[in-house]
Design a protein around this nucleic acid. Structure first.
Lengths: 347, 347
DNA sequence: CCGGACATTCAAAGCGGTTTGGATGCCAAC
DNA sequence: GTTGGCATCCAAACCGCTTTGAATGTCCGG
């Protein structure tokens, strides 16, 4: 059943039927009622493609995902972000279009999605320091919102981000307050903006107490269980091992925990762990009391906010950049405690 | 730049330009060359919506994801599946459209996506035993492929699935061969088809040796780290505790491992663990030697196969169902060993 | 009683492609 | 010298919707 058929069924013109269904005022309430009634009865739904062509709006938001074997989509954070954004799109009647591209084709993908006109806007995932995509999108004139920020990029773009610097600064201070002085950082890959900021916050907190970060206690890489484990194992073998770990992901924290178990050290007593917790659906940091002390910020909520911001920008046509900095909360769990006194300092 | 403009730029009709670009034979090689050259030069790309409307093909595949707080998209498996499917779509020029719907609206979402005509086909995720979506889609006449199967459903549908029954049967036999008799099953929610089959395989292997499954050694639920941990902790307290665990997910296996550590039991010596391993990008089962003995099957590959099958069906218009049963491989890691002799039986 | 304002409806022109059904010109064959 | 076939190209219809511009009918004020 299409518009024309429905119209002739009703003895009306397509014009009137279209207007009745789209809430235009120049149609009498009586006919509007007849029309909506008939539409329901025949289960009529306007053809998406035709509507899009006629209105020039794709009613769709694009997410372009580079097909690294390593990052992005296989990143556990991605699914939760998408879930959050998808909720918002669904409510607003937008589609979510994912495009998976080989890393080398990323720029082409952005250009193409634009010139083919099948999305009204784009969410940029996983911004790097000095990310080349932002100027590209700016040049294309396609509305976009970044999940995260990009150090060193022209700041005229819109973003939603967690205050990573502050979060890791607070986490570090928290450990310093507990008396820890040898604190290790198990970070994400530091070309990623969020990881660069976290390191920065870590170093800033140390500097505030007149301490310098020890390169031997900092690693950056894929945030996996194995990463945490291997990093911790190496560091615990150092002559002056860390008494606390700050990790960028729940998985890394679990890896550190494994390393502790392997050498019969107790988490929270012998060694403390603080992790960042993205509140992923299937990686919950405990139920009541958190397993790990953590800087917590919901990635799903970030997805919602990114989507809402982008839709707002598209619909109002605003070009002035808009930003949303989410503060992480520091929740205290069982993985932290006062720094153990150094054995060689005991009496 | 649209078709008409490009055509007039070339002094040709839109017809000819369209044909030249789409590879129709009734255009001379010389003009085809001129056209493609000009298209590149002006960076022309046919408008997606117009093309879709004219051809009646959406060039898009839908994935409808119920917004349970619990399942589906927050399921770690989802991202990898999507990555695999997305690769295939991208190569074939299809878009991937995700729709997130509140669980209650799922049926309406399927109907709507069909009548609005914005996808050419659908992938069904997470089929349950007796899944109501399959007859619905059959009725709608929308091409679809199921990732998994549905026990009790009319078998006239196409699917790609892992041989879950066989995988768990083999895993169980493997443990039985090592002398284990008290084997625990930490399963997914058993209304899900895959979980029902796994349990079935488990029980079949036991039955083949004249053993019955002990209900006290079977749990089913969200496949999280906490699930594995809590299940194992409870079971290890039993008077006749299990000597081996079979878990449905890598995360659950890590939880079981935690429970072992907590009571100073060594994995592979005191208690064995076999898990199913979906080969997720960020949850690798070790690098060289697997951490856990596992039944292994790549979910990403399943995504590729589902997508390829669906596209093939759409493009050829076949309606005869097609199926693809992937066998999991059993890889042996450090988490399994011979069953310990019962202390009370030692000499 | 007439003209203008207003409410309601419609015909037709897009949107930007694809596709049908010719046109045109050229050449080989009868 | 027709005729038929073939290679090329084009005008126009169409996909299903929105939207512009105009028509029609009604009502009210002057």
């Amino acid at each position: 059943m299409n518009l024309k058929q429905l119209a002739s069924e009703l003895g009306l013109s397509p014009t009137t039927v279209s207007r009745a269904l789209n809430g235009y005022p120049e149609v009498s309430e009586a006919t509007r009622l007849r029309v909506t009634e008939a539409a329901r009865h025949y289960n009529y739904r306007p053809n998406t493609q035709a509507k899009r062509l006629a209105t020039g709006r794709a009613m769709a938001i694009g997410h372009i995902i580079p097909l690294s074997t390593r990052h992005e989509i296989v990143n556990p954070v991605f699914a939760d972000f998408i879930a959050g954004a998808g909720e918002v799109y669904a409510r607003a009647g937008y589609d979510m279009v994912l495009t998976i591209v080989p890393d080398s084709d990323e720029e082409r993908a952005y250009r193409e999605v634009h010139s083919k006109g099948n999305v009204d806007g784009i969410i940029v995932h996983g911004p790097k320091v000095h990310d080349a995509r932002l100027p590209l999108l700016e040049e294309l004139g396609l509305p976009f919102v970044v999940h995260g920020r990009s150090l060193g990029a022209d700041p005229g773009y819109s973003w939603v981000d967690v205050n990573n610097t502050r979060a890791f600064e607070r986490a570090t201070s928290f450990l310093l307050d507990l008396g820890h002085r040898r604190i290790a950082l198990v970070n994400g890959i530091e070309t990623m903006d969020f990881a660069a900021r976290r390191r920065h916050g870590f170093e800033r907190a140390l500097a505030a107490r007149g301490l310098a970060a020890d390169p031997a206690l900092m690693v950056a890489g894929e945030m996996t269980e194995v990463q945490g484990h291997d990093a911790a194992r190496g560091m615990l073998d150092l002559p002056d091992p860390p008494t606390a770990f700050l990790t960028a992901s729940f998985l890394s924290a679990m890896g550190v925990r494994r390393a502790l178990w392997e050498r019969d050290m107790r988490m929270g007593r012998d060694v403390s762990i603080v992790t960042h917790d993205d509140e992923l659906g299937y990686l919950r940091n405990g139920t009541d009391e958190p397993i790990f002390t953590a800087t917590r910020s919901s990635v799903r909520e970030a997805g919602r906010r990114c989507a809402a911001m982008l839709l707002r920008r598209i619909e109002t046509g605003t070009s002035a950049p808009e930003t949303d900095l989410m503060e992480a909360t520091l929740v205290v769990g069982a993985s932290t405690g006062p720094a153990p006194r150094r054995p060689d300092l005991i009496d």
